[in-house]
Design a protein around this nucleic acid. Structure first.
Lengths: 218, 218
DNA sequence: CATATTTTATAGCGATCGCTACAAATGAAA
DNA sequence: TTTCATTTGTAGCGATCGCTATAAAATATG
């Protein structure tokens, strides 16, 4: 019994994802959504509930697809150094992929919100904080393993790389190329504890010990 | 002859500025503006034209006040190194000043825009690009003056610090403290050409020359 | 085919959007 | 005090917002 729907739920969900990605939560109207998805409002509400639940489903889909690289990088690399480098490298590629809108949906889709969607804004903020916490945990793991200087501040370092990723997202939305973002990534990696120590390769042993854990030079 | 207006134009303009700063261009309605400013719609339209021109005036006011530190830092410091360090230091203080909304209005007030306000979004993008160009020009000036390694890419370095500032703005809006942003600034300055060369102080002369202009270590 | 169940398109709900017509209120000049 | 330009608050314009009542169309089952 019963009629079957004439559209593919996953296909139109991906279309909604890109609409929210490009214009953001509030700026994307149900009218523009249905027009892009090729369906009428009753079909959207029957399949996804309402605009807010559609956006929530979009965010979940985003985190399992386009936005999954961050968490994956934290777990698949042998060291925090390589995990962060991969995070930045893949963000450069992902944020400028011409196959979809630029930048990161979690970073940019709920920035300008009125009081009635403040909870959506807060939900995105919590996702960003969770991502930063994941970076901090990966760095802290290497710190306790003795792979980083004793005075390494995992939280502060994670905040720096989270900010770097967020800056890359903004730059991508402003038209920066993949190469532009890769150069941002390279500069950011120069702040890694002990980085640029290559300049000391082959130096006398009595100076070798000054490589890591040195406080920032003013 | 004629009646005089009962409100101070500068005072209510500053109130509008903070509303746009906190919620963004589209998410701030005329109704919320007039409620915050303590005036009625006809007074707003008589004094400022329409919502868009009010926002334009708000942006001009912002750039002459809260947002002026960036351009000022580029011109008042003797070196590009000190100019960028001051830019980041003052951004950390400004973006977390409890006396006004967090972050930067130019970076965050027109992120989520529908098609009808795409030109506002574009105007903010151009202001961000102009700021980045100002940073690049300051770095290039030091490069031609011989204060930086010959292979210094002023554009790429400017993109990195512009991204850093944008990341700091996002972090501030997510609740980061001034100290958090100052630590971001410190990490970002470690990417400055020749930075961390302090680790080489007192080293043999034959290694001294490797301090600056060294390519990034992978 | 007949029936039952779900989806579809149309059409429109109340609320809010940016904005303004209008007339009362105001206050400097005559 | 009268005149008159300007500002004020009220009240509401047409358009769009998120959302839905309704009935026709479509399809798996009996």
């Amino acid at each position: 019994m019963s009629r079957q729907r004439a559209f593919n739920r996953d296909v139109v969900l991906e279309i909604a994802l890109r609409e929210f990605w490009r214009h953001g939560y509030e700026a994307t109207s149900v009218a523009s959504l249905t027009a892009a998805m090729g369906i009428r409002p009753p079909s959207l509400y029957a399949a996804f509930g309402d605009k807010r639940r559609l956006f929530e489903e979009v965010v979940e889909r985003y985190q399992r697809s386009h936005g999954a690289f961050s968490a994956v990088a934290m777990t698949e690399e042998p060291t925090a150094r390589e995990a962060i480098a991969r995070l930045l490298r893949e963000a450069a590629a992902e944020y400028t992929d011409p196959g979809h809108p630029p930048g990161c949906l979690v970073i940019s889709a709920a920035v300008n919100c009125g009081p009635e969607s403040a909870d959506v804004q807060e939900a995105m903020r919590e996702l960003r904080e969770a991502g930063k916490a994941g970076i901090a945990a990966r760095i802290a793991a290497d710190a306790v393993a003795g792979l980083l200087p004793e005075d390494t501040d995992a939280g502060a370092l994670a905040t720096f790389y989270a900010a770097t990723v967020q800056g890359m997202s903004t730059q991508a939305r402003d038209g920066a190329t993949r190469r532009d973002l890769e150069r941002i990534a390279e500069f950011a990696m120069l702040a890694w504890p002990g980085e640029r120590a290559g300049a000391l390769e082959g130096m006398p042993e009595n100076l070798e010990g000054t490589r890591a854990g040195r406080p920032a030079v003013r």
